[in-house]
Simulated scan of single mutants.
Amino acid sequence: MLKIAVLISGGGTNLQSIIDSIENNYLNCCIECVICDKAGAFGIDRAKKHDIKTFVIDKKEHGVALSDKILEIVNEKVDLIVLAGFLSILKGDILKRFHNKIINIHPSLIPSFCGKGMYGIKVHERALEYGVKITGCTVHFVDEGTDTGSIIIQKAVKVLEDDTPETLQKRVLEQEHKALSEAIKLISEGRVKIEGRKIKIV
């Protein structure tokens, strides 16, 4: 059984989708812990409701030591780290120890609307400003860059003429919930093969 740590910064709807996927037997894995970089985030309440161990490592308090604090918690205890709406950037030893064992969900079709400063509603605002007809979400491995790791899954969402950033965000989020659990399932089944920066699903 795949052991995972889920990292969050806010409400935890992607966390909830993983919990639901485990409870309905879609995923054969267990959430060893939920780690949040922001005190008072509702996602922590979601985890506690399901008796999942929680940790709050406030980025304002720990700053550059945040990644090392997280590594102390997860080292040799989990097989995969899932960034589910986690807004801090992981750096240092954790990226080496968990090479190709950290995944992130991003609310656009990478390489569009990603990188530094591109998170949350800002992504959807930029997509609408640019006038794209299709957007979506991407699950990718985490490397030393920001949103630059190998792509595992992408799901497309049609942009409607009357979309606002909020309505677009809502529809993309629905696909995020599906994509994240799908990626975890593929990894747990050993079906994700990395060849250079390309990934094959076998």
Rank of each mutant, 00 (worst) to 15 (best):
M1V: 07
L2Y: 02
L2H: 00
K3H: 08
A5K: 12
I8R: 04
S9W: 04
S9P: 14
G11R: 13
T13S: 15
L15N: 03
L15T: 14
S17Y: 11
S17Q: 01
I18L: 14
I19V: 15
I22D: 09
E23R: 15
N25L: 06
N28T: 11
N28I: 11
C30Y: 09
C33H: 01
C33Q: 10
V34G: 00
V34I: 10
D37P: 10
K38G: 04
A39K: 14
A39L: 13
A41N: 12
G43E: 04
G43W: 07
K53F: 02
T54Q: 07
F55G: 01
D58Q: 01
E61V: 13
A65M: 07
S67M: 00
K69I: 00
I70C: 06
I70L: 09
I70K: 01
L71Q: 10
V74P: 04
N75P: 03
N75L: 09
K77I: 02
L83D: 09
A84E: 01
G85F: 09
G85S: 06
F86H: 02
I89A: 05
G92A: 12
G92F: 00
D93L: 13
I94G: 08
I94L: 09
K96N: 13
R97D: 05
F98Q: 00
N100G: 10
N100V: 07
K101I: 09
K101F: 02
I102S: 00
I103D: 05
N104P: 12
N104C: 01
I105L: 10
P107K: 06
S108E: 05
S108G: 14
G117M: 04
G117A: 01
M118I: 12
M118H: 03
I121S: 13
I121G: 10
K122C: 04
H124A: 06
R126E: 15
I134H: 10
G136Y: 05
T138K: 08
T138A: 03
T138I: 09
H140D: 02
D143F: 07
D143M: 02
E144W: 11
G145W: 12
I151W: 06
I153C: 09
V157H: 08
V159M: 06
V159K: 06
E161W: 13
D162S: 15
D162P: 09
T167H: 00
T167N: 02
T167A: 07
L168P: 10
Q169V: 03
R171G: 05
K178M: 14
E182A: 15
E182W: 10
A183F: 03
I184H: 09
K185C: 00
L186K: 12
I187D: 02
G190H: 12
G190V: 08
I194Q: 12
R197Q: 14
